[in-house]
Simulated assay, not measured.
Amino acid sequence: MRRIDAIAISLGVFVAAGLVYFILQIVGLDGINAGIWTQTLLVIGLVGWSLTYFLRVGNKKMTYNQQLKDYEEAVMQKRLEEMSPEELEKLQQEIEQQKEA
């Protein structure tokens, strides 16, 4: 995530919280209760975001892990493409031997 993206998201959350506060006041809550409910919604949102983060970490769905996996697959594909037909046949025989064992 770029720095400008983080700033935009933070600004968006700040503006959304302000809108929720004013909407709650229009609905009929006084300033204190509107503020409490706005903060409650922000905390719930923060906890929810944190849970999704920990879920991605636990499932290894982070950007770095995906990039590393893609890189390893690309390296293996390039190695396979550079192998001669004899080397490919030898590798295939080794794989079949391991499957049998």
Rank of each mutant, 00 (worst) to 15 (best):
Q77M: 09
E96T: 06
G28N: 10
Q93F: 08
T38E: 01
Q92D: 03
Q39I: 15
L88F: 01
E73L: 15
E89D: 14
N65V: 08
E81R: 13
A17D: 06
V75R: 05
V47Q: 05
S84C: 01
L42R: 02
E86S: 10
S10N: 05
G58W: 14
T52R: 07
Q39F: 14
Q93S: 11
I26E: 05
L91T: 07
M76V: 14
V75S: 02
V47N: 07
I44G: 15
S10K: 01
G35Y: 07
L46G: 03
R79W: 03
Q67G: 01
A16M: 02
M83D: 02
E89T: 04
E86C: 05
F22P: 00
K78I: 02
I95K: 12
K78E: 12
A74D: 10
S50H: 04
G58F: 14
A74G: 03
N59G: 03
L41E: 05
A34K: 06
L24R: 06
Q25W: 00
L41F: 15
K61R: 15
E87Y: 06
A8I: 08
T40R: 12
E81C: 01
R79Q: 05
L88C: 08
I7R: 06
Y53H: 11
K60V: 03
G31S: 15
S50G: 07
I23T: 13
Y21C: 04
L51I: 15
V20G: 00
T40D: 08
A16R: 00
L42F: 04
M83Y: 02
F54V: 14
V43L: 14
T63P: 09
D30E: 13
Q92V: 01
S50N: 08
R79A: 06
V20W: 10
Q66F: 13
N65R: 06
K60G: 01
D70Y: 02
L88Q: 15
T63W: 13
G31R: 13
G35D: 05
F22L: 12
I95R: 12
L80F: 08
E87N: 09
V75M: 11
L41G: 15
G48W: 00
I9Y: 01
L91A: 13
S84F: 08
S50E: 05
M83N: 01
Q92E: 08
Q77T: 09
L80V: 04
G31L: 07
I44C: 15
Q77G: 02
Q39V: 13
E73V: 07
A17V: 00
K69R: 13
I32W: 08
L19W: 10
Y21T: 01
G18V: 01
Q66G: 07
I44D: 12
R56I: 03
Q77R: 13
N33T: 10
G35M: 05
T63R: 15
E89L: 05
L19H: 02
F14W: 11
E81I: 04
Q39N: 15
M83A: 02
M76P: 00
E94T: 06
Y53L: 14
K60N: 09
G35I: 07
Q77S: 14
Q25D: 00
A8M: 03
G18R: 03
N59Q: 08
K69I: 14
T40Y: 12
V75A: 05
A34V: 02
G45D: 04
G18C: 03
G31P: 07
I44H: 02
V75K: 12
G35P: 04
I95M: 10
G58R: 12
F22Q: 10
